[in-house]
Simulated assay, not measured.
Amino acid sequence: MDDSPLQSHPIRRYQGGIWHALDDELAVEEPLELRVGTPEHSQPLSVTMRTPGHDLELARGWLHAEGLLDAVSGISPLQGAPNVLLLTGDAERLLAARREGVTSSACGVCGSGSVEGLMRRVSAPVWTAPPLSPALIARLPDLLRTAQPAFSASGGLHAAGLLGADGTLLSAYEDVGRHNAVDKLVGAALSRLPLDNHCLVTSSRAGFEIVQKALLAGIPVVVTVGAPSSLAAETALSLGLTLVGFARGGRFNVYAGAERIGG
């Protein structure tokens, strides 16, 4: 399977009264299917649209968010089937989860339960570091932007970055789906969960699924360049998450958890 996040596409561009023939870089979007069973006999669990690359991290992060990671003993590409990962483990539990509505497409949490269910699974994330400076928060999106090479070339991908309490960018992942980018980030950091004293910064809006994935990973601070939804803000308030939105142009809004921010 081709893991390139970009694909060249011929276009005609009209500019300054003149037509130009050239190639443009587009963000690749392809389905990734998770199947359960053996190479000889497997059943579908989930299909999501994503940018190829870091598929194992994406799968692990998604399974972690759905509370299914401990039911999986192995994840591997299904031979002869591009864009398919085979899960081995507790097939009965995994397929039961599918029947209960875990299977998702565009949305990382569609059908995966209520806020009350989330509240039973997590506790308030831990922040013992000094308060974050407003100046640092204001520059986090620009810092993430330096780790978005595919976006720079295509303009068509979201990104999620994990930062330490001092603002050091530790890792960053890109994908056409904002929730996929976060799943890749969490999946790569599973051995270090919970991520106390870390920040998640995304190039997207703050929907509920972003807040959910941060809480399940133990991340106490989320910074996004777009607006939060009402459910995201209410969930952040209820579960002790610091939620910052509209972080761009040197400005930002704090929707929950202002005590973690200095000044």
Score class of each variant (00 low, 15 high):
residue 120 R to W: 10
residue 121 R to Q: 09
residue 84 V to G: 14
residue 157 L to R: 06
residue 83 N to F: 15
residue 154 S to L: 01
residue 110 C to V: 07
residue 132 L to E: 08
residue 97 A to W: 04
residue 84 V to I: 15
residue 129 A to V: 08
residue 130 P to G: 00
residue 111 G to S: 11
residue 125 P to M: 07
residue 161 G to R: 03
residue 147 A to K: 08
residue 103 T to S: 09
residue 96 A to M: 13
residue 154 S to F: 00
residue 125 P to E: 05
residue 103 T to F: 03
residue 102 V to S: 11
residue 146 T to G: 00
residue 143 L to F: 03
residue 148 Q to L: 05
residue 141 P to M: 02
residue 132 L to K: 05
residue 85 L to Q: 11
residue 156 G to P: 06
residue 135 A to D: 14
residue 143 L to W: 05
residue 126 V to H: 13
residue 141 P to D: 04
residue 127 W to K: 06
residue 119 M to P: 15
residue 137 I to M: 07
residue 102 V to H: 12
residue 139 R to V: 03
residue 101 G to R: 02
residue 108 G to C: 13
residue 140 L to N: 07
residue 112 S to I: 08
residue 105 S to F: 12
residue 119 M to Q: 15
residue 104 S to N: 08
residue 135 A to M: 10
residue 127 W to E: 04
residue 104 S to A: 09
residue 88 T to Q: 15
residue 89 G to I: 07
residue 149 P to I: 01
residue 105 S to A: 12
residue 120 R to C: 09
residue 117 G to Y: 00
residue 149 P to H: 03
residue 99 R to K: 13
residue 130 P to E: 01
residue 134 P to L: 07
residue 151 F to M: 02
residue 150 A to S: 08
residue 87 L to Q: 04
residue 82 P to C: 05
residue 133 S to P: 00
residue 94 L to N: 12
residue 116 E to I: 04
residue 121 R to G: 07
residue 137 I to E: 12
residue 142 D to F: 03
residue 157 L to H: 03
residue 128 T to Y: 00
residue 94 L to E: 12
residue 112 S to F: 10
residue 88 T to I: 07
residue 132 L to G: 09
residue 123 S to T: 15
residue 123 S to V: 14
residue 144 L to Q: 02
residue 98 R to F: 04
residue 159 A to N: 05
residue 107 C to V: 12
residue 103 T to N: 06
residue 107 C to G: 11
residue 161 G to T: 01
residue 103 T to P: 11
residue 86 L to N: 09
residue 108 G to M: 11
residue 101 G to P: 04
residue 100 E to W: 05
residue 141 P to G: 00
residue 124 A to W: 14
residue 92 E to Y: 08
residue 103 T to E: 10
residue 123 S to I: 11
residue 82 P to M: 01
residue 110 C to A: 10
residue 128 T to C: 02
residue 115 V to K: 13
residue 153 A to N: 03
residue 108 G to R: 09
residue 113 G to T: 10
residue 127 W to D: 08
residue 136 L to S: 03
residue 130 P to T: 01
residue 87 L to A: 04
residue 120 R to E: 15
